[in-house]
Nucleic acid binder design. Structure first.
Lengths: 112, 112
DNA sequence: GTACTATACCTCGTACTTCGATGTATAGAG
DNA sequence: CTCTATACATCGAAGTACGAGGTATAGTAC
């Protein structure tokens, strides 16, 4: 995850992950369900997206992981670091900027 | 450009190109300026994005190209085909769906 | 006349993101 | 004892976007 680039690339999975984990600590599987819930099934992060993303975010120091045994199953809980919160802020404002721009284009060139 | 997939991938350049060309025929360089204008400089499609995208869209039958000589310079004008308009409709509704979902997530999980 | 800027097209290699498929293993329900 | 849900993970493929570089003409400023 290119630290601070992301010019146009959606980066939506990263944004959603940071946003939901900023609210409360969760483990992967739980997070997947949470994403589906908040977006009312509009967005579903597949496991092939979710787990690599979590690892990458941890590696970049944006998330901190903590393993816990719960009823015979291993869960990996994640929470957002200070750096992660800064990244979340950046991604949020970036998203809004792009979303506003796209809306303007969709509304029609007459507003140029 | 994956005909009808695009699950999460932004596909924003494709959407903007189709949207602006649906309004009126333009040539590449002009289109680049138009994008900057409507989005108030928020989005600038580099030439490394724009031209390959135009070629790919033409190849997929979403755009039709027409070369014209204007004052010693060659311009390639593009307009949107019927198929292109259908694709534009799909991309637009897809965008709105994703944008709404992301906004919901940013607003906070309390609305889950 | 000549250097610089704007116009106008193009391509290549690279990097990153995302996707689907597949794999492992445990717990609980029927 | 089988099937589903939970819970983690990885791999290869495909798609997207980006920056850098390349060609050439027209007009402007010096």
């Amino acid at each position: 995850m290119g630290d601070a680039k992301a010019l146009l690339m959606s980066g939506v999975p990263e944004l959603l992950i940071l946003r939901l984990l900023a609210e409360r600590e969760m483990y992967g599987y739980e997070l997947a369900r949470a994403v589906r819930a908040v977006t009312r099934e509009a967005i579903s992060l597949g496991e092939g997206v979710l787990y690599p993303a979590l690892h990458s975010l941890e590696l970049s120091g944006l998330l901190r992981a903590r393993r816990r045994q719960v009823g015979g199953r291993t869960r990996v809980y994640y929470n957002v670091t200070a750096k992660g919160r800064r990244r979340l802020e950046y991604l949020t404002s970036h998203w809004r900027r792009i979303a506003t721009a796209v809306e303007a284009a969709l509304a029609g060139p007459q507003h140029a």
